[in-house]
Deep mutational scan, measured.
Amino acid sequence: KFNKERVIAIGEIMRLPNLNSLQVVAFINSLRDDPSQSANLLAEAKKLNDAQAP
């Protein structure tokens, strides 16, 4: 279950337009470290993406 959620979360994070490459890598590394947190990490990535919108 967590592996599928992690793959989906990674794909979504990679498509967030307002994150820089270091932020994307940090979120992906966090997902690798704890796949059970996929939903929480994706939500945090989306919040950061929205906050950094031009």
Rank of each mutant, 00 (worst) to 15 (best):
V24E: 01
D50T: 08
P17Y: 06
K1M: 13
K47F: 07
S38I: 15
I13T: 01
N18S: 04
L22I: 10
A51N: 07
A26Q: 10
I8E: 09
A53S: 09
N49Y: 01
L48H: 02
F27N: 00
L31C: 03
R6G: 15
S21Y: 12
R15C: 10
I13Y: 01
A26T: 08
A9W: 09
L31A: 03
N20V: 06
V25M: 13
P35L: 06
I13K: 00
N3P: 06
N40Q: 11
D34R: 06
V7R: 15
Q52L: 05
V7L: 13
F27C: 02
I13A: 01
S36Y: 09
P35G: 08
D33E: 09
V24G: 01
A39N: 10
P35N: 05
L22C: 13
L16A: 01
R32T: 14
K46Q: 05
E44C: 12
L42Y: 04
Q52D: 02
V24I: 12
K4V: 05
S38D: 04
N40I: 11
D50C: 09
F2I: 14
E44L: 12
S21C: 15
I13G: 00
S36Q: 07
S36L: 08
A39Q: 08
N20R: 12
I13N: 00
D33C: 10
Q52M: 11
Q52P: 02
L16P: 00
N49D: 04
D50H: 09
N20F: 12
R15S: 07
Q23G: 01
L19H: 00
S21R: 13
A26L: 09
Q52F: 04
L16D: 00
F27D: 00
R32V: 15
L42F: 04
E12Q: 13
K46I: 09
L41V: 13
L22E: 09
D34A: 06
L31K: 00
F2M: 12
L22G: 09
V7W: 15
N20E: 04
E12H: 10
E5F: 10
N3G: 07
V25N: 08
L16T: 00
I10K: 03
N40L: 12
A43P: 01
K1I: 14
Q37E: 07
K47A: 10
E5W: 10
A43Q: 08
N20G: 06
A9G: 02
K4D: 15
Q37H: 07
A39K: 14
S30N: 07
N49C: 02
M14R: 07
D33I: 14
K46A: 04
R32E: 14
A53T: 10
L42I: 06
S36I: 06
A51D: 07
K46G: 02
N29F: 15
R6M: 15
L22V: 11
A9C: 05
L19E: 00
N18G: 03
M14T: 04
A26Y: 12
A9M: 06
I8P: 02
K47Y: 06
I13D: 00
S30V: 11
R15M: 05
N40T: 12
Q37R: 13
K47T: 11
L31S: 02
E12P: 01
A45T: 00
I13H: 00
L19S: 00
D33S: 10
L48Y: 04
F27Y: 06
V7S: 07
I28G: 01
D50N: 10
L16I: 01
V7F: 14
M14S: 05
L41T: 10
I13L: 07
E44I: 13
E44Q: 14
V7H: 07
E5V: 06
E5P: 03
A51G: 05
I10C: 10
A45G: 01
D50S: 07
P35V: 05
D33W: 10
L16F: 04
L19A: 00
S21V: 11
S30W: 12
N18V: 00
S36D: 04
I10D: 01
A9S: 03
K46C: 05
L42D: 00
E12G: 07
L16W: 01
D34F: 08
N20D: 08
Q52H: 03
N18L: 02
I28N: 02
K46R: 12
K1G: 15
K46M: 07
A51S: 09
A45V: 02
N18C: 05
L22F: 11
L48K: 03
F2S: 13
P17I: 09
Q37K: 11
P54F: 13
F27W: 02
K1Y: 11
S38W: 15
Q52N: 08
R32A: 09
Q37S: 05
D33T: 13
R32N: 15
Q23Y: 02
D34L: 05
L41S: 03
S36K: 06
S30Q: 13
K47H: 07
K1T: 09
A51W: 10
K4G: 09
M14Y: 06
E44R: 14
G11C: 15
M14N: 04
A9N: 02
P54D: 07
F2V: 12
V24H: 02
M14F: 05
S30E: 07
A53H: 07
P35A: 13
L41W: 07
L41Y: 10
I8D: 03
A45F: 03
R6I: 15
R6K: 11
A45N: 00
R32Q: 13
P54T: 08
A43C: 10
V25E: 07
S21N: 10
P35R: 04
L48V: 07
S38F: 14
L19Y: 00
N49P: 01
Q52C: 12
E5K: 04
D33Q: 08
Q23A: 02
L19C: 02
A45I: 02
R15V: 04
A26W: 13
N20H: 12
D34S: 08
L22W: 12
Q37L: 10
R15E: 03
Q37D: 06
S21W: 14
V24A: 04
M14W: 04
A51K: 11
